[in-house]
Design a protein around this nucleic acid. Sequence first.
DNA 1: GTTAGCATGTAAGGAGTTACATGATTTT
DNA 2: AAAATCATGTAACTCCTTACATGCTAAC
Lengths: 214, 214
Amino acid sequence: MAGRKSSGVLELAVLGLLHETPMHGYELRKRLNALLGMFRAFSYGSLYPCLKRLVEQGLIVEDRPEDDDPGGALLLQSRRSKIVYKLTADGKERLQELLTEAGPAAWEDEGFGVRFAFFSHTRADVRLRILEGRRSRLEERLESFRAALARTRERVDSYTLELHNHGLESVEREVRWLNELIGRERAEQAGGRSKRPDERAEEASADDTSDGDR
Amino acid sequence: MAGRKSSGVLELAVLGLLHETPMHGYELRKRLNALLGMFRAFSYGSLYPCLKRLVEQGLIVEDRPEDDDPGGALLLQSRRSKIVYKLTADGKERLQELLTEAGPAAWEDEGFGVRFAFFSHTRADVRLRILEGRRSRLEERLESFRAALARTRERVDSYTLELHNHGLESVEREVRWLNELIGRERAEQAGGRSKRPDERAEEASADDTSDGDR
DNA sequence: GTTAGCATGTAAGGAGTTACATGATTTT
DNA sequence: AAAATCATGTAACTCCTTACATGCTAAC
């Protein structure tokens, strides 16, 4: 209902973490960096404004502990203390919306990590699409990178070469990881239903549109 | 002489590439993305303003081909065509300055890749310090991440776990890579001089200030 | 002659950081 | 009672992206 547009990793990560359990900002940041710390770290300077925006959008609500003192008698009010944030119904809906979109945002570097972290709240078919999308994206990157290298027939010094190889191997490693995950997802999905033999055909065709690997 | 402050990966990458050979913007961007494409990609919207700044700072100069037509006779002038940029003496100095600073900027994620790409223009002792700095940085990250995990004694779902393991392994892999590079650098440096036994002491002391590994 | 790719740029804006400013609570 | 850490926030700024606007050059 309130101001739309925001996206970004932070919003999703905050909604995801608050879905598990209500928290205040400071703790949120720690959990955030424990969750994604290997990829990126957020500062308070981005977290608090984000929380503010989410409140404005009605996706989360502040739970100030002033409400604990109904008479308002003894303690000086506004003891600016912990503000616990929790998800609203709209927030849950928005989270689900974000976790369900299987577009570029979901498989680009920044977006993928967070979405993967919350995969247990994501529909199985969407999980598979995101994993495959990510894999395609990486394969594209490998391909265009190798093509660029081939064009550069000029001498490359040993450090540049070393960097390129390390980069390539990193990405190849992630592709192998994705392959394994995709395999597991498919096995689980196949085992999970066991009826509907027609769906196997769907899977197979989705397979050759998406890539040319293995 | 002109406005200072700018830093950033782009500036360094542009200076580094132009040091190898003069180029125009469009080609520069391709080479840029061929060099660092596995880590990041730049758009024209950031490249051209960057070139403009570098010109203002006197670090590069434009070489417009209008000068090819001394009489200015036949062709309509200002045939807005390729603008070839090349490094000035100040630019070379600045590049050297950037490649020589062995501080946090050199081993944080964004800065490390570019600097490594131009390692062949970097002094051997600086190379070693940067590699060691990067390794320390990653080891710090591993440590604080594992500490955060230990604190989170709560249940982690299998996807989060999977993400954490993949992240950890990626970083551990880079540490192993760095170990190998550092070993090579040291061997080369030790073999390269063979005189001056006092320098070994310097190396040894530099060693224990920088990290606590092995 | 029109599409595709080469080439240069600008304006508006998004996403996040640093540095600062403040206060509460816990530990030593 | 001092120091550390918990806790919340803001203002200014950086770096880069997207979308747009333009024009040249080669290929089909």
